[in-house]
Write a protein that binds this DNA or RNA. Sequence first.
DNA 1: ACCACTTAAGCAACGCTGTTGCCAAAGTGC
DNA 2: GCACTTTGGCAACAGCGTTGCTTAAGTGGT
Lengths: 375, 375
Amino acid sequence: MNRGSRSGGANLPALRHHNASLVLDLLRVAGEQGISRLELAGRTGLTPQAVSKITARLRTEGLATEAGRLASTGGKPRTVLRLVPDAGYAVGLHLDRDELTAVLADLAGTTVATRTFPLHLGAPAAEVLATAAHAVRTVRADAPAAAARQVFGVGAALPGPLDHRSGVLHRVTGFPRWDGYPLRDALAEHTGLPVVVDKDTNAAALGLALRERAEADFVYLHLGTGLGAGLVLGGALHRGARTGAGEFGHQTLQLDGPPCDCGGHGCIEALCLTAVARGDIPEAARILGAGAANLVGLLDIDRVVLGGRTVAAHEDAYVNGVRAVIEERARREGVTASVPVTVAGGGDRPVAEGAAQLVLAPLFGRAGEDGGERG
Amino acid sequence: MNRGSRSGGANLPALRHHNASLVLDLLRVAGEQGISRLELAGRTGLTPQAVSKITARLRTEGLATEAGRLASTGGKPRTVLRLVPDAGYAVGLHLDRDELTAVLADLAGTTVATRTFPLHLGAPAAEVLATAAHAVRTVRADAPAAAARQVFGVGAALPGPLDHRSGVLHRVTGFPRWDGYPLRDALAEHTGLPVVVDKDTNAAALGLALRERAEADFVYLHLGTGLGAGLVLGGALHRGARTGAGEFGHQTLQLDGPPCDCGGHGCIEALCLTAVARGDIPEAARILGAGAANLVGLLDIDRVVLGGRTVAAHEDAYVNGVRAVIEERARREGVTASVPVTVAGGGDRPVAEGAAQLVLAPLFGRAGEDGGERG
DNA sequence: ACCACTTAAGCAACGCTGTTGCCAAAGTGC
DNA sequence: GCACTTTGGCAACAGCGTTGCTTAAGTGGT
């Protein structure tokens, strides 16, 4: 069951919800192509009859529909089922230091509207909130009429550390005035919608995780004005005990190395960005690769995804540089299976799209460690 | 549900097993003191009536029993239930480089017999296997007669990297001849019991995790002849995609630093053990602390436990040194909650005890990511 | 064109789960 | 001794996935 439904005890409604989420997730992953009942049964381990009952309920609720049939394999052809994408929507907000991106995503994860607004994160809270609320209204208005009624909530992603559980910000890097601000509740009041907040790197990682199989272990490394990580372990975002996981930029990579703004020495972010400032991209990639290799070895990650504006400027150099370090270390340790290193296309767009998934993912049983309820 | 029952679909027997495991785990944690039905209901989120039914089944199976009653709070006093420790046993083996420790643990995790044998891990496989099988027979003979019949299996912990899922060893550090050896199946044949193998650090971490609440996130750092880690995330061992997680010793902590036996540079193990060899314990502790702080920040761990012979020789120095680094970094980042640093007492004994838990933990729903079945 | 065979998927009955409503058991306190 | 509180079992129940069977809808040989 969703590990962490506060207490762990599971009853029949919980069982039903769990299996329904599982099936819905497989329908989502199957996309427009759809998936047959029997394949759903095979993938879930449920009996075909159970899948028939579950999909019948989903069809009644309007979440799934029949969509053609496959070629026969000697008998009655399989009926294909697929998700109904416009059965629900979510708004994703990316509050970056200098701009606000808002997207409207449907159940399938497709972005049906995008808007960008200038934003100064250092401005007073009321101003930032007004901009955010305006952005939400605007993307809702952009979308077809049916969408407006079925918006499940707003996911908001922003830099700095914060408490995902309570929705309270900590010291957003560079903007100390946000320390202790209850963004989730404030935004919920301004928009009249449920709100989920999380770090930008977590949002991006979640968005990427939803494109992978449900058990994936991977890490998203975001190199922009800072350096952060989003960890997906066992298919779920790892947020840690105080939802502060992913502090990657201030990992010590060079003991007693050059000082960093944070007060430490030899932080990977400082080393990496210094190299970038010098224009030495291969060295920046090598440093990032050393940090990534540490992570791969420690967690036995099976995929590394790079993103952020700085990476976007020299994608190949970073991918190749990071891959080289990881492969060299794997060779030393006699590991044969290689860990793919890829780049998340679209610069910062994955963050806003992932933010929308903060709201949608719980429907598919893809919440993090702390659950989430149906709409 | 046990995330990772191959496919994720859950049916009624799975539900029943899940809830029974949960209750059994709470009974185990409650220890000799026991726990009332109503508290079980509160902790699990199940209704009192459901708990009554579940505990009635457990009592019928001989796994639980009534044990006195609490003081009344104005009405009928609560009946206390507790685990029946001798309802099942498991053997734990710690195959170290120079000696083999075998323990017999009961369901409550209590060690009821211990034996130590000399062992040379570099000897031919047949010799090592014979010693291991002899050790298993010996600890079984040491225990009361009832125990001999109810041994669920053997858990074996050893250094080097290995594949937990298949039970095949990789290059055990320093003993290349073990590479590719199917230890689990070989030992199962020699003993006639189910066998589970894992890294020594994972076994120790699992043993420690079972003493904590079920949702704990912590890391066990073992400094002996090498340096390794065992990660417990969300209450479960994190083994990673290829069950190779916990490679902590060869994390790069000093970019382009002094060479390490592994072929890399600036590995934390090399730095740390060089300092130990110089007799500079505070420096070794500081280096270990830097690695631990990286880990705490990255994963938002809420506890660090140190162990191993090298640590045991200067417990206070290591605990204080590591704590100092972690606290300094927490202060820099404005985190108030402190991360406790403790030491696992008993030198290497926690490894053998944890090895036994490789077999017992699945009964309590505390398996790692890859399940495990009832006896 | 027909018919035997294969495969998919719904219907009905079933076993078993936790839940609900009720009542007996076993204390406390006036 | 009686009213009250609290625990915990009994019985009936709703709802989950499972099993056995039937119907639907194809293929392929004759």
